[in-house]
Design a protein around this nucleic acid. Structure first.
Length: 418
DNA sequence: TCTGGGGTCCTAGGACCC
DNA sequence: TCTGGGGTCCTAGGACCC
């Protein structure tokens, strides 16, 4: 049995952990640069505020109902996420952390439907008691069914956050009430295509012939169909599979127009992407570097991406950043107000399997990179950095409503006045 | 007054080469 | 001289997830 546990409106609910006075009030949380709404607490949901809409579009509702708005405080969320995952992990034989607020828990035992429901409620209660986060729990024989149950637990009447798909009757009951686009892995576009075939509900998708779905769509959707029928297709190992591509990208707080500023930002993205690469003990053969203005600006849309290959696969940040000036020359265009840029490591191989070329001169310095990573892990990002990133924070992120990092900084510990 | 996220994977199609 | 198939590399952009 799999359970999917996730927090409702995680970022916003995390803010309430430190602000119990807001517990019964609506809270929403914004993305980087305070651009979009990315989390909506259950109370704010009832006001009709949707995720992923630009903040300025909900400002009226925010003011009308006195909704509390916060910027994203990742330090706080990561620390609360860890506590939440640890708490849930104590129940399960095995867990797989899927995202900051979602975890799959695996159980190797057989229980009755009622006992699974009781377990779900127990998890929910315990996480609330220990971390003060509202979580839902959905159980099923496959991860896709667990996801569906979790959806039902939250959206369908009568479940109160916990649902289990154990019997055929329960499976049919829940899937026939679920829109096909609510199935894990079916987005807007696939949904449209399925609808033209008359497949509107999750149950209908589960009744399709897997072979036909594979032919008409993909092996991925075939697996979804099989999982909806209780056939296990999604597996995970103890370790998360290595990424095939790693990206670091961000929008600027204010538009960037000079080559020097663009260079600094891209250097920073090289640093963080390469840090992630070394975490999975990888080497990269090629990168793409890209920058664009905003599609919402009046100016014509400009987007440029440049692919750059290295003679020898590398894990050394310096090798990558040394290639940047030449790449930037191909991207930068005077007069463009750059809004976003980023770096992707797009051809990754594993250092363990890589057979080095005896005759090539490898300039990587793994020891230096180890020191770089160790120092930055211990003393904070950019304690040691590549000089071309610059030492002044010129393109700082807009975070008008940032809260205290109450669980990770001595200086931010909340005080209680009696 | 101005304001529109981030990450990963996949693929169509053009450019280029043989 | 004109015409042609097939492969690889690269870029843009779509699709999905949160």
């Amino acid at each position: 049995m799999f359970f999917l546990c996730d927090a409702s409106g995680f970022y916003s609910s995390a803010e309430k952990v430190m602000r119990p006075d807001l517990r019964k009030k609506p809270v929403i949380t914004l993305s980087n640069n305070d651009g979009c709404v990315v989390a909506v607490c259950p109370i704010a949901k009832r006001l009709g505020i949707k995720k992923f809409v630009p903040y300025f579009q909900v400002k009226d509702v925010v003011e009308k109902y006195g909704v509390t708005v916060t910027s994203s405080n990742y330090e706080l969320y990561h620390s609360l996420s860890t506590k939440m995952m640890d708490t849930i992990g104590q129940f399960a034989d095995d867990v797989y952390v899927y995202s900051i607020d979602e975890v799959f828990a695996r159980f190797n035992t057989a229980l009755s439907h009622e006992s699974w429901m009781a377990l779900g409620r127990e998890i929910r209660k315990t996480v609330w008691k220990e971390v003060r986060l509202p979580v839902g729990a959905g159980g099923g024989l496959t991860p896709t069914l667990a996801k569906a149950a979790s959806h039902a637990g939250k959206r369908l009447p009568g479940y109160n956050g916990v649902a289990v798909i154990h019997s055929e009757q329960e499976r049919v009951n829940i899937l026939e009430q679920m829109d096909v686009t609510d199935v894990w892995g079916v987005g807007r576009r696939l949904g449209q295509k399925l609808r033209t075939l008359g497949i509107n509900k999750a149950l209908q998708l589960s009744q399709q012939s897997p072979a036909r779905i594979r032919k008409q769509f993909s092996i991925i959707l075939e697996n979804t169909v099989r999982e909806l029928n209780g056939e296990l297709r999604i597996h995970w190992d103890d370790v998360r599979p290595d990424k095939q591509q790693i990206y670091s990208t961000r929008t600027f707080g204010t538009r960037v127009t000079t080559k020097a500023e663009l260079h600094k930002a891209i250097t920073g993205h090289c640093e963080s992407a390469m840090r992630k690469l070394r975490k999975q003990r990888g080497l990269t053969k090629a990168i793409t570097v890209f920058a664009s203005n905003s599609p919402h600006d009046d100016a014509r849309y400009y987007r440029k991406s440049v692919y750059h290959q290295f003679a020898i696969p590398t894990m050394d940040t310096r090798i990558v950043t040394n290639a940047i000036p030449a790449v930037i020359d191909k991207i930068y265009k005077p007069g463009i107000c750059f809004y976003r840029c980023g770096v992707g490591l797009v051809e990754i191989l594993s250092a363990a399997n890589y057979q080095a070329d005896l005759f090539a001169e490898n300039k990587d310095n793994p020891k230096l990179m180890n020191v770089l990573d160790a120092v930055n892990d211990r003393y904070g990002k950019s304690t040691l950095q590549i000089a071309s990133k610059g030492f002044t924070k010129t393109h700082e992120m807009k975070r008008q409503f940032i809260t205290q990092r109450a669980t990770t900084r001595w200086s931010d510990i909340p005080t209680i006045q009696c």
